[in-house]
Design a binder for these strands. Structure first.
Lengths: 379, 379
DNA sequence: TTGTAGGCGTTATCAG
DNA sequence: CTGATAACGCCTACAA
């Protein structure tokens, strides 16, 4: 099949009009007579014409695509059962069927379930509404720079999850196309930015712990220093404490890396402290769910009861928080909305390149579950 | 920022070489001296040069992108908690935080959880390995044709989930770029195709029901007639029965539409039959999980016990099967592998346009859970 | 309502 | 190892 693909010109010749007219008909700019339209439509069908995006892009200087740059981990985050994809493709000679009895789900997902797939979904939706296509790339190691620049050369704008790109690369990219930063991990920036109400979320959560559960000794487990979201969350933590008249530390006493493994380490330290006679805080507020789940792993293993002995909370709203024992109280982020808002910010920026930089903050939801104690049901 | 983006030529001038040389350096074709390389690299950095994919594509006649065309429902399938995205964006004036007590998850997802996000993940991975970028589109109604053709003009090949595109559109597309069909719903085709061991999966499952659970009266709930996967699954169903010496119908007695709602209707009919004195079959084997879950909804509501009164099984391996009550025995599809295999087939086809059409069948896993009865643990 | 002409930024071909 | 030079397929004034 497919010799040389038919071009606009072929269509024009066949329809007996000029290529300009065909162009007009296709993009329906300007005026085209009904006759011409019909002839063109026929020619297109007969020839099987498909416009070349490359030529279009070159001539019009826009590609009608936006790029999404997600953390490598996103690959893992999109993880679902039945996935496999470990690196080796399924053996061609392997059995067509295997049988297992109720397998336990894969142990621990790296980054434990912040479904970036949701972000993609939201972004795709917004792009679709704007008549744009979407292309996604994971910021994987080898060749990161080349691949990201390639993407930059291919799109009208990019959404970049904060922290996925080295600063100089990000700068290089943003000299070419507008960039919207999706705050997540990583450092601040001078681009349009979309984030969530981190501080308010934690503040409200802590308020609940203090007011409704009467907890007065709380501790915060953060991320590494300089993580903007974490800093905001900690600020919310402090604010709530101070407002309740409880002494609050200047900085988190514990710092993790947002991972469950590190959460376990911190859990071990806490438990070890108890063994030495230290007393557990009334509540441990974690900067994210994975960290909290890591602590929970250790608490369960060592007989520390949650919420009786210590209340535990997370942030993000990953799926695992619903099925942990006890289910984890957390602050849920609207992932799909993040994607949508990011693309919306991008299209706005593309439309008005010189408008002021914007920051969009999306609302969060405090989800009260067993890990912070029993609830009547009116928050 | 950004006046007129620097071009290859600008880089060449600045580096004091010809544009050809710059091109060579960038794509590292042919030979370029170290000096030239260095000068070029500097020029690129200083200018913030990013190659234009449009120009590249036009000149080289390849775009280094592959497209993925997913069913509209995929939008819903990527669904996760914290999603929202109902159509209206979050109110700007809305509260930054809201609080809820352990909300039940959103009722029912349309198509209930065939995570196409997994397919995307697998496809992205394979594309990445091949140095390709990926663009995804959902086959949404208005403008389907225009959008799909636009995608076709933008990529070197497309993966299309079977049934998402009208035949004539698919044909139009495939006149331009190679197409790999991901069997799912819909009709057969003359393209490279990737699918799973549908028949073998069900066959093995039924074998288990008969041999290990001693069930001798089984019924099959299919999809609408002409659905290839369903037909294969039914064939596996028949084969297992016949081999076990059990009479098997020529065609499914019940037909659903793969949806949970329709599954409920079928469930109601079954229950109504019982009320009229009919006797339940020993097992109901459903063509997919959603249908089975629909039946289960009704059975639970009417006190029909699974697996005591009737055994129930599905197909797909959606997440909900793990948390239903009882957990649903099913045949799990390797979603990510499907995506990967599809892109692999595509790159192979692109490399050898005239090779014979291929069919790739991926292995499945029969997952035994509570809905088919107790198990020791050796299948 | 339609056509003409020129250029968009790269790659590929062919000589040096 | 390097440079001219011609496409590549379409859009966009501008003119008719």
């Amino acid at each position: 099949m497919r010799g040389r693909a038919p071009t606009l010109r072929d269509v024009a010749d066949r329809a007996g009009v000029s290529s300009t007219t065909v162009s007009r008909a296709i993009n329906d700019h300007g005026f085209v007579s009904q006759d011409a339209r019909a002839a063109i439509r026929n020619a297109i069908d007969e020839l099987g014409y498909v416009p070349s995006a490359s030529a279009r892009g070159l001539a019009s200087r826009r590609t009608a695509m936006v790029g999404l740059c997600l953390p490598v981990v996103a690959a893992d985050l999109l993880h679902r059962p039945g996935a496999r994809l470990a690196g080796a493709p399924a053996q061609p000679g392997a059995e067509a069927v295997s049988v297992v009895v109720d397998p336990t789900p894969d142990a621990i997902l790296p980054w434990g379930g912040m479904y970036f797939g949701e972000v993609v979904r939201g972004a795709e939706f917004a792009a679709w509404e704007a008549g744009l296509a979407i292309t996604v790339a994971m910021s994987r190691s080898p060749d990161l720079e080349a691949r990201v620049l390639t993407m930059a050369g291919r799109v009208d704008g990019m959404v970049v999850v904060s922290g996925t790109l080295p600063d100089d690369l990000l700068e290089h990219v943003s000299r070419r196309v507008p960039v919207v930063v999706l705050t997540g991990l990583g450092s601040a920036s001078a681009h349009d930015r979309v984030t969530v109400s981190n501080a308010e979320g934690v503040e409200r959560l802590v308020e609940h712990l203090v007011a409704d559960h009467g907890i007065t000794s709380l501790e915060y487990v953060g991320a590494w220093a300089g993580t903007p979201d974490d800093e905001e969350r900690f600020r919310g933590f402090r604010r709530a404490l101070l407002r309740a008249g409880i002494a609050a530390p200047e900085s988190p006493r514990w710092r993790g890396d947002l991972g469950r493994r590190r959460g376990r380490e911190i859990g071990e330290e806490l438990v070890a402290g108890v063994a030495r006679g230290e007393v557990l805080p009334g509540a441990v507020v974690c900067c994210n769910d994975d960290t909290a789940l890591g602590l929970l792993d250790v608490f369960s293993a060592h007989g520390v009861r949650v919420p009786e002995d210590v209340v535990l909370t997370g942030f993000d709203g990953v799926e695992a928080t619903r099925t942990s024992d006890p289910p984890l109280t957390t602050v849920e982020q609207p992932m799909a909305e993040l994607g949508r808002a990011a693309v919306a910010a991008l299209t706005a920026r593309i439309a008005a390149p010189s408008r002021r930089t914007t920051v969009t903050s999306l609302p969060v939801t405090v989800v009260l579950r067993g890990s912070c104690g029993p609830h009547s049901d009116a928050p």
